[in-house]
Design a protein around this nucleic acid. Sequence first.
DNA 1: CGGGACTCCTGAGGGC
DNA 2: TGCCCTCAGGAGTCCC
Length: 289
Amino acid sequence: MPELPEVEVVKKSLESKIKNLVIKNVKINDGNLRYKLKSKELTKICGLKIKKIERRSKFLLFYLNKLFVILIHLGMTGKFFFIDNKKKKYKTSFYYYLNEKKDDKHDRVIFNLQDEKKLIYNDVRKFGFFKFLNIKNHKNNFHLKSLGPEPLSAKFGYKYFTKYIENKNKSIKNILMDQKFVSGLGNIYVNEILYFSKIKPTRNVGKLKNTEIRKIIFYIKKILKKAIIEGGSSIKNFSSSDGKKGGFQESFKVYGKKDKNCSNSDCSGKIVRAFLNNRSAFFCPKCQK
DNA sequence: CGGGACTCCTGAGGGC
DNA sequence: TGCCCTCAGGAGTCCC
């Protein structure tokens, strides 16, 4: 699922729910995530308080007292559910609200928090992970260390972009997907960004004009901001009468739109799907050059 | 260096 | 209803 906007929405939602709560204990239903969860590490965090929640790229960081950090990646299908047993109100961190949270075989890890509150980590495909780090050197963890700048930061601008792509011989889609270049973009947003920028995903970065580079940077920031405001994107529709999803999927112009008409009113092209680095590239061959 | 194939895992959806 | 095939928002490794 989750690219930068979705993880940002999760972060904001979790912040209001679990900040300053103590983790009483942790139950592992299935610890075979991308990295195997060890119960020994989980006992270390029991009794600690969640002091702060941050997002870096597509990662979440839970800062605990006693100088521990939980580094979390949601992979493709990871999501959190928050449950307040006292209020009998159930809310997910991102995808939907529920009146009732039923047990789900994909509930992999359950954090029992103070005041009968619970945080459930649910992950169908188990590509997500948790790592337990010491705050002292957590930023040297290889996941975090190699990340490029945040796309919404001032550092990610024209100067950085042009410097980075000097002597590079890659396609623009692949470089935007490369977390070392810019961290937080994934397949959906890259496809959308390139559509708005009118650049074909396969274009070599060495052949980009300055105006095109500025356009790409502009749309990266614009589209990510818009997606965050709209609550991220929810695909693989969850059908619940009281469900609440992110809304940005309604704005998709190319992602998942194979054979649909290009939404540019002065273009008669049809969206095609190609494969690039084993991922779907959606684009309009007529208006993306 | 670049990119294609393949890997982890499970489920949804299409075609027949 | 079922089976078989393809594909999925991430990201790593191996190989050419």
